[in-house]
Design a protein around this nucleic acid. Sequence first.
RNA 1: GGGGGGGUGGCAGAGCGGUCAAAUGCAACGGACUGUAACUCCGUCGGGGAAACCCUACACAGGUUCGAAUCCUGUCCCCCCCA
Length: 410
Amino acid sequence: MMTYQPKSEFLRTMIARGFMQDCTDLEALDEALLEGIVPGYIGFDCTADSLHVGHLTQIMMLRWLQKTGHKPITLMGGGTTKIGDPSGKDEARQLLTTEQINANMAGIRDVFEKFLTFGDGAQDAVQPDNAEWLDQLNYVAFLRDYGRHFTINRMLSFDSVKLRLDREQPLTFLEFNYMLLQAYDFMELNKRYGCALQLGGSDQWGNIVNGIDLTRRINRNQVFGLTTPLLTKADGTKMGKSASGAIWLNADRLSPYAFWQFWRNTLDADVGKFLKLFTELPLDECERLAALQGADINEAKIQLANAVTTLAHGANAAAAAEQTSREVFEKGGIGDDLPTITLPAGQTSIVQLFVKAGLSASGKEAKRLIAEGGAKIDDVVVSDPGQMIDLADTLKLSAGKKRHVLVRAG
RNA sequence: GGGGGGGUGGCAGAGCGGUCAAAUGCAACGGACUGUAACUCCGUCGGGGAAACCCUACACAGGUUCGAAUCCUGUCCCCCCCA
């Protein structure tokens, strides 16, 4: 039960928009936020060269932090990625090379540039890499200075550890150390940047609390933690995955059109929640849109798609995606934003066309699609799998009602 | 170190000499319905081929059989119990 009503804009926003799950000390954090600039951080693994929709809650929190007058720190886990966080994972992850990690870090930076303002100012975002301090740790010195502050009894009580032990899945000592290093990160960020807040998903609670304790003991500073609820869709499935994989925030990995479509296809019941979390539309507008009934709620989904795509890819990309979507879905036409492939002009079998366009994983699958009546070329149902087609101009291939690809003769 | 159980399709999980490209569930894909929904229903769901049909698959390598996911031998990996 939340009895305390925060006064700071940041916390009020977090609560009102549904970001808040738990806070270590709401009242004291609120005071700190009212007093001055609070640097707050979230750590990100460097396991891929982009971030995806699953990270978007965290990204938006940092954006709000900056918008409400504070300093976001996007900590790159260049050091900890070499270890792997056991939280919520069933198995140890495979280790990445330093080169891969560095490349990934650059890609992630590109994503953050869209959401945050980086620089040297007091409220500008910074992006340190924990390899800066973790790589040079001396094992014995670390154990002596910091290891003494962690008891095995306590560490064993964390859900992330318990889960693995209960399932009798191996938890290596390497992974077991992850939480020490994350705690060390918080302490180090407190030293370097005066960082006083760690944000994260609710699965990070244990790690965050460890960092708070360590910072208090070593630095003698009070710092805070705030977690977000685990995000699930109304149908119970995990947020951020689609048929074709993760919904990346990077245009190289997922086109703005596909990104827009992802949001356009939000479940009715999720529209309000997503508007609040992933857009900056005023709350009353979010509520008005979410309350639309029947087919009218499609308008809300378009607004959602436009707003989120604008944040991630810019207003032009969002407008183009919307335009193409209207052409394709409302008029049955084509749009520039549709995924496009170029193939040599001439005779091609339809089956091969669908495979090359990425609409079918194999020829077998393409034939199946045709047999089921789901394959269309320029909106005409294909009936003969053996048919050859003369590729001379541009064709629109459709697999079902939603997946369309343009094929150009080149 | 000793004893026992197991590794099957994206996942879960049957099969235990032929009728098995392998039950069932989930996921996925297509269709109907609709709002580019949800729910429900129907269909499909290893690869190649227009098709007949062929190929590759049940941890890996051999072997026994007319015939093996199913039996034998060896290798690797996982789990349980005892010490």
